[in-house]
């Protein structure tokens, strides 16, 4: 069975391996180059909170714009590709060609056929996701970025998230093949499914834990690295939270262009009158808690999809 799994899916395995290797080379190349650049330009104490460090990171991101663009699409594209090319054809192609009538009438039981294929390919997919995660984890600090948690795109490419997403997309593709018995509709299901699940989970992620409430009197900018801000509100001197910024207390003139001067003046005025500012956020220390929560949700989804596929395959009706 393992031989058959390799023989039937070696194209996907080799192409995915090749793409990961190419990405690895790209990241390695850019990392080496970036290190040289940083060695030449970095002020001491970076990465850190100094403005000079921020400027450096900005310069780097401009320098690696192409890599960043690729990077921006990756959290969405990589799982979609895995689901489309690994998951959807697993059953869809067999049904399309009628070869399930060959494969499922051999001495090896259908249950074993399914479990080996799901196990081996699911394992490889997860391993691929972890490899991506490891590469990104090694590469990101070189670019003077420590935004593992606050940046949802990066969050989905480090830790266990890529493995969970890839597995989820794979299982969804397999289930699509079992339901539609065709490859193309199963592929479409994966694309639609990922496109819906990703923003859905992003919204849901606010509720993975009770947000921390930090009250500030002097600045509306949160003084915490890499946190995920989920809400804010002004607090009146009486202590009650206001649903919207208070009106009639301070003059609030709209800003023109990119300047934030009027806004800043308005805020200074409010702080001067005893108003305070509450920021609801998840601090970066919750990184692993969020990683495992997301992975667990996706794992439940994967099991549900895989279970559907197995059930549909084992109890076949006309």
């Amino acid at each position: 069975m393992i031989w058959l799994t390799w023989r039937q899916h070696r194209a996907q395995i080799l192409v995915t391996g090749g793409l990961l290797a190419a990405l690895g080379l790209l990241l390695l190349g850019s990392a080496v180059e970036a290190r040289l650049y940083v060695a030449g330009h970095a002020p001491p104490g970076c990465p850190g909170r100094a403005a000079a460090c921020w400027d450096l990171a900005l310069a780097l991101s401009e320098r690696y714009d192409a890599v960043y663009t690729l990077f921006g699409w990756m959290p969405l594209m990589a799982p979609a590709l895995v689901g489309v090319f690994w998951g959807a054809p697993l059953l869809g192609r067999e049904y399309e060609r009628g070869t399930q009538k060959l494969a499922w009438t051999q001495a090896v039981s259908v249950r074993r056929w399914m479990l080996v294929k799901l196990g081996v390919l699911g394992g490889l997919v997860s391993a691929g996701g972890l490899l991506l995660s490891a590469m990104v984890a090694l590469w990101r600090p070189v670019l003077q970025r420590e935004d593992w948690f606050g940046n949802i795109g990066v969050f989905n490419m480090v830790g266990v998230a890529p493995a969970a997403w890839w597995l989820y997309a794979f299982a969804m593709g397999v289930a699509g093949g079992a339901l539609f018995r065709r490859t193309l509709p199963a592929m479409a299901l994966v694309v639609a499914g990922i496109a819906l699940t990703m923003p859905g989970l992003f919204r849901l992620s606010e509720h993975y834990a009770e947000p921390v409430r930090t009250v500030q009197s002097g600045s509306t900018v949160l003084n915490a690295d890499d946190a995920r801000v989920v809400g804010w509100a002004w607090i009146a001197p009486s202590g009650t939270e206001l649903p919207s910024p208070p009106t009639g207390v301070c003059a609030h003139r709209p800003d023109t262009g990119r300047s934030g001067r009027n806004q800043e003046a308005y805020e200074r005025c409010l702080f001067g009158k005893g108003y305070r500012y509450a920021i609801y956020h998840h601090p970066a220390t919750r990184f692993w808690r969020f990683q495992w929560t997301e992975a667990a949700i996706l794992a439940v989804g994967s099991v549900a999809f895989a279970g559907t596929a197995v059930r549909r395959t084992l109890r076949r009706r006309v």
Partner: peptide
């Protein structure tokens, strides 16, 4: 054991 040859004689192309 049962061996089966389906109508369109499916094989892996």
């Amino acid at each position: 054991d049962v061996a089966f040859m389906a109508q369109d004689k499916p094989l892996y192309d």
